[in-house]
Amino acid sequence: MPKSLVQNHQELDEWITSGMLYNEIIEIYREKYGIELKPAMLANYRKRRGLPSRQVRSNLVPRNLEPVHRGRYILDMLRLVARDRALKDESLSETDRKLVKPLSEREQTRMDAFLENLAAADAVVTYEADTEDGFYYVPRTEADQDIVRYVGIHAPVDE
C-alpha cells in the first residue's frame, strides 16, 4: 500500500471543515510539505473521513436522479441557483457558509441567463427519469412556487 500523502490528519480535517477551498489547501500543502495534492484526492479523503459534504443540498435537485442525467445543462444551472441561494440564506451558519463555493463571474453570468430565459418563457423545470433528456421546460402554472416542478418519487425532501 502506498504511503499516505496526508502529513497531519487533524490539520487537514480542520482545514476542510472550516470551509477552506481545495485549491487553498493544495497551495498550503505545496508550500508547507512540498507535496502536490489533487482536488479529487481531497474529495475522496473528505468522504472517507466522514467530513461534511461540500455540495449544497437543495430542493431544486430531484431525488433519485438517473446517472445518465447527471451532466445535463439544466441540472448544472439548478445547482448554481442552489449555491447562490445558499450564499444569500441568512439562516445559514458561518461555518456552513464557508463550505459553499461562491459563484465565479462566468457561473453568475450563466445562471442569470438561465433564469432570464425561464422567466421570459414563463416556464419551470420538470424531471422525468424514464426519458432520454430527463429535464424539460414546461409552462408555469399558478401552482408553481419555484423554478422547478417535481412530483412523485423525484420530489425533493424538505430538510
Rank of each mutant, 00 (worst) to 15 (best):
Y127C: 08
V81Y: 06
R63H: 06
E105W: 09
A82M: 08
V100M: 01
K47V: 08
V61P: 08
N64L: 14
I74N: 07
L80S: 05
N117W: 08
E116N: 12
R72W: 09
R63C: 08
R46L: 08
I74E: 05
V61A: 05
F135A: 10
V56T: 14
R49D: 03
A82V: 02
A113K: 14
V124N: 07
R49G: 01
R48D: 10
R79A: 06
L51T: 02
L99H: 12
A120K: 03
L115M: 15
P39Y: 07
A86F: 13
V125C: 11
T109D: 14
P62Q: 08
R49W: 02
L92F: 08
Q55A: 11
F135K: 10
E90D: 12
R54W: 00
R79I: 05
R49S: 04
D76N: 07
L80A: 06
G134L: 11
V56S: 09
K88A: 10
R83P: 02
L60D: 02
F135C: 04
S58I: 13
M111A: 15
E107F: 10
H69T: 05
Y45I: 02
V56G: 05
A86L: 13
L51S: 00
R85M: 11
E107K: 06
R57E: 07
D96R: 15
T95E: 15
L80V: 01
R110Q: 15
L103D: 09
P52V: 00
V81F: 00
R48K: 15
A120M: 13
L115V: 07
